Amino acid sequence: MGADCSTNPDAPECHFSIDGRSSTKSASIPKAGPANVSNVRVCQEVPVFIPLVQRVVTVGDPSVPERMTQQECTVNGHLVDSSLLFSPIDPAAPTVSAQQLAQHAYQALVMPRPDVGMSPRADVPQLAGLPVWLWLKPGSWSSKSVTLTVGGVTVTATATPRQVVWSMGDGTTETCAGPGTPFPEHPTGDGMALSPDCGHIYRRTSAMEPGGAFHVTTTITWRVDWTGFGPGGTFPDVESSTGFPVRVIEAAALVTNSH
């Protein structure tokens, strides 16, 4: 059994050292207990007692946050031990909400500009009245995602393409649910076939347009969902666009220029 610090403060049990400096804590006055009580050691946490200490020594791995508590142990109401305890704080405890982290992931998404395909090619004159095939090249029509982890919370924001709108520059638009179909390398027929899913026919020339060309804009609309810690959710759609000129002429002009 330890010493009674209230009557014998010089006993070894009444002294401890923190950061190399000695401190003395007076024990509470022993409580008289029944004669038949067995010598049972009882420990409990109490308010931290650190007299005259200017700083606390880091214990264990400094990269792991720790919580400091003081523990007192008694036997039959007599204080027998007083010590400082260091326990790691749960690293999985969220320091940021999943919704806040998902918002950061949403803002970190960088959507690629559409890489377009067109037949006839955009760098050669189109013929008014003839079909034009429109499509997106590989890589433009695939999901993009950003994953972030903070304080044990991991979320992923994923952008999925849902439609592409072609503003053809002549006042009309073509809305396609998918990336479109590339024009075949070895077409059959007379070249008058329409695209099966995404195409356009210019009904007039671009001769009166600035620079003699229509300005075409291709815009992909992306749906953004986030998953991870919690039920997840959906953010507002995002868009990515690219633009380029297209010159459209009459078929007769092409014949004239070919001679």
Rank of each mutant, 00 (worst) to 15 (best):
residue 100 Q to Y: 01
residue 119 S to H: 15
residue 125 P to L: 06
residue 103 Q to H: 11
residue 128 A to I: 01
residue 108 A to W: 03
residue 133 W to Y: 07
residue 129 G to A: 13
residue 110 V to N: 14
residue 131 P to R: 12
residue 109 L to M: 12
residue 123 D to G: 07
residue 114 P to W: 00
residue 117 G to W: 01
residue 139 G to C: 06
residue 100 Q to K: 10
residue 105 A to V: 04
residue 122 A to T: 07
residue 98 A to L: 08
residue 107 Q to A: 14
residue 122 A to L: 07
residue 104 H to F: 10
residue 107 Q to S: 13
residue 139 G to F: 11
residue 98 A to F: 02
residue 116 V to I: 13
residue 110 V to I: 14
residue 132 V to S: 07
residue 108 A to V: 03
residue 127 L to I: 15
residue 128 A to E: 14
residue 101 L to Y: 12
residue 114 P to S: 06
residue 105 A to D: 02
residue 138 P to I: 00
residue 131 P to V: 06
residue 114 P to C: 05
residue 120 P to E: 03
residue 116 V to G: 00
residue 124 V to R: 07
residue 121 R to G: 12
residue 98 A to M: 01
residue 102 A to R: 00
residue 139 G to P: 08
residue 115 D to I: 03
residue 108 A to T: 02
residue 99 Q to L: 14
residue 146 V to W: 09
residue 111 M to I: 09
residue 123 D to P: 01
residue 128 A to D: 05
residue 128 A to G: 12
residue 125 P to E: 05
residue 111 M to Q: 12
residue 127 L to W: 06
residue 121 R to C: 08
residue 117 G to E: 00
residue 112 P to E: 10
residue 148 L to F: 05
residue 120 P to H: 00
residue 103 Q to P: 08
residue 122 A to W: 13
residue 116 V to S: 03
residue 139 G to S: 09
residue 129 G to W: 10
residue 125 P to Q: 02
residue 126 Q to E: 09
residue 123 D to Q: 05
residue 133 W to K: 06
residue 108 A to L: 10
residue 104 H to E: 13
residue 128 A to P: 11
residue 134 L to T: 03
residue 130 L to Q: 15
residue 135 W to L: 05
residue 111 M to S: 01
residue 138 P to W: 06
residue 118 M to E: 15
residue 108 A to N: 08
residue 115 D to M: 06
residue 126 Q to W: 04
residue 101 L to G: 11
residue 126 Q to Y: 00
residue 125 P to W: 13
residue 147 T to S: 14
residue 124 V to Y: 00
residue 141 W to K: 06
residue 106 Y to L: 02
residue 116 V to K: 00
residue 131 P to E: 10
residue 125 P to V: 06
residue 138 P to N: 07
residue 100 Q to I: 08
residue 142 S to P: 04
residue 115 D to G: 03
residue 112 P to W: 05
residue 114 P to D: 03
residue 98 A to Q: 11
residue 103 Q to G: 14
residue 102 A to L: 09
residue 100 Q to M: 07
residue 120 P to S: 11
residue 147 T to G: 07
residue 106 Y to K: 05
residue 146 V to L: 08
residue 131 P to G: 02
residue 134 L to H: 07
residue 101 L to H: 07
residue 134 L to M: 15
residue 145 S to R: 15
residue 117 G to I: 01
residue 108 A to K: 11
residue 106 Y to H: 10
residue 116 V to F: 00
residue 99 Q to G: 04
residue 115 D to C: 01
residue 113 R to Q: 14
residue 119 S to K: 08
residue 132 V to Y: 08
residue 145 S to I: 01
residue 126 Q to F: 09
residue 126 Q to R: 15
residue 123 D to E: 14
residue 125 P to H: 01
residue 145 S to K: 12
residue 116 V to M: 03
residue 117 G to Y: 02
residue 124 V to F: 03
residue 129 G to H: 10
residue 136 L to K: 03
residue 117 G to R: 02
residue 141 W to D: 09
residue 148 L to P: 11
residue 104 H to K: 14
residue 147 T to P: 11
residue 141 W to E: 04
residue 136 L to Y: 08
residue 113 R to M: 09
residue 128 A to H: 03
residue 124 V to K: 03
residue 135 W to Q: 01
